[in-house]
Design a protein around this nucleic acid. Structure first.
Length: 222
DNA sequence: TGCCAGGCCGGGT
DNA sequence: ACCCGGCATGGC
């Protein structure tokens, strides 16, 4: 991959998208607990359905890690049902909360103060926490500057020939880590911009007639 | 009606 | 290392 051009292109993409869409205020969630729970609930799921599950947790006064800890797994599953794959997610939420408890006794300040690479490795060791979930938790709940790659990110970058079809999560993440300043605010906004672009102009099949990045479609890295 | 959504895991080859 | 089905709801 071209190295100098890579940074230029990624910065340019950001400028164009930021100008087109403005501040996105991600992650949508008022507390760190809510962000952490939402990161699992949104796995392969439309955010609309995640909101329903979050609303139900809120109504049950269970939108907190300590509530998840106290809830029976079957009851938790029933509460988060609108999010889909709810039995799987109930198990994953339980596992994640247990791990956080074991790690730092539920103290999120202590959790996120640890070495970032160690923290990420630890999160990846929790069954049901993959790279995107781990990075979303670290970035949006912990303000740790790790870049979140998701289906939208890959689709947008592939369609604009910034990455090839074979590029995987860590490859793409490394691209951003190498060429951009590690600013959690910028990383958070950038990821949000990819999602916004993906939803509006980069659907799985549709082409990108009025996509803000249209003029850059064939002028990228590879 | 089928495809999709802010993934991840386990089994098979 | 790669490929694939399962998980499951709700919207278009």
């Amino acid at each position: 991959m071209g190295h100098r051009r890579a940074g230029d292109t990624l910065r340019r993409f950001y400028e164009v998208l930021d100008a087109a869409f403005g501040p996105q205020h991600w992650w949508p969630g008022e507390t760190r607990d809510e962000v952490i729970l939402g990161a699992v609930l949104t796995q392969n799921t439309a955010w609309r359905n995640v909101e329903r599950a979050i609303d139900r947790l809120k109504s049950a006064k269970a939108l907190a890690l300590r509530s998840i800890r106290a809830l029976d797994e079957a009851d938790l599953a029933a509460l988060i049902r609108p999010a889909g794959t709810y039995r799987v997610k109930a198990r994953r939420l339980k596992a994640l909360v247990s791990w956080i408890d074991a790690r730092c006794d539920g103290d999120l300040d202590a959790l996120f103060a640890k070495d970032a690479a160690r923290l990420r490795a630890g999160l990846l060791g929790v069954p049901g926490v993959g790279p995107e979930t781990a990075d979303a938790i670290m970035l949006y709940a912990g303000s740790i500057p790790t870049f979140v790659v998701d289906a939208y990110t890959l689709r947008v970058l592939r369609r604009h020939f910034v990455i090839d079809e074979a590029a995987e999560y860590d490859d793409v993440q490394a691209l951003f880590h190498c060429h951009l300043d590690r600013d959690p605010g910028v990383f958070g906004q950038y990821h949000a911009l990819f999602v916004e672009l993906g939803k509006r102009f980069c659907k799985p099949r549709a082409n990108c007639d009025v996509c803000p990045l249209r003029d850059w479609a064939h002028d990228a890295l590879l």
